[in-house]
């Protein structure tokens, strides 16, 4: 039980570090992580755009990062210099962040922590099924003035 507890902590920490690294490395502005908390599956936190990664292998579950359009637009402008991105671009950006953040976790979990290609959506999809009986952690983050959620559901 203690291992489960520490697992929760380390897992959260890993994702917080990974998100931090992403923003710090690419934008020189770190993302502030809020206090993580547990959340019921049926009422998950979603912002305007979400990139979700399925996890299989040594651990099973999902990870998603959800943020508002403006955050993604800012990033796209910074990376590509494109001031008015299309919805497609924004979705793409959401997918890429979730991919990089969960991909980087493999440095610790190794190649058995298998990640899917990003699943991206706008708003709240009608059908969003998660494997039941897994705790879902929500890590609120704040980058510049943008709020976002990193949501981790892992066995």
């Amino acid at each position: 039980m203690e291992t489960k507890q520490s697992k929760f902590e380390t897992t959260c920490q890993l994702f917080i570090d990974s998100v931090n690294n992403y923003f710090e490395h690419l934008t020189q502005t770190p993302a502030e992580a809020g206090v993580p908390y547990l959340k019921e599956q049926d009422n998950l936190m979603l912002k305007e755009f979400t990139g979700m990664i399925g996890i299989s292998g040594s651990r099973k579950g999902f990870v998603y990062i959800s943020g508002n359009q403006q955050m993604y637009s800012d990033l796209i402008e910074l990376f590509v210099g494109l001031a008015e991105p299309t919805t497609e671009d924004v979705l793409d950006m959401a997918g890429e962040i979730s991919n990089v953040v969960s991909g980087n976790v493999r440095e610790t979990y190794g190649s058995d922590f298998m990640i899917s290609v990003p699943i991206v959506f706008e708003g709240r999809p009608k059908q969003l099924k998660f494997p039941s009986e897994i705790p879902v952690y929500v890590i609120p983050i704040k980058w510049k003035s943008h709020e976002a959620f990193v949501v981790i559901g892992l066995e």
Partner: peptide, 23 residues
């Protein structure tokens, strides 16, 4: 983005000449 060492080494094995981690 896959930052584990094994993936990098596998890529070198298969003939990659350079390697970069995202971000």
């Amino acid at each position: 983005a896959l930052s584990d060492k094994l993936t990098g080494l596998q890529a070198l094995d298969k003939g990659a000449r350079g390697f970069l981690y995202k971000p």
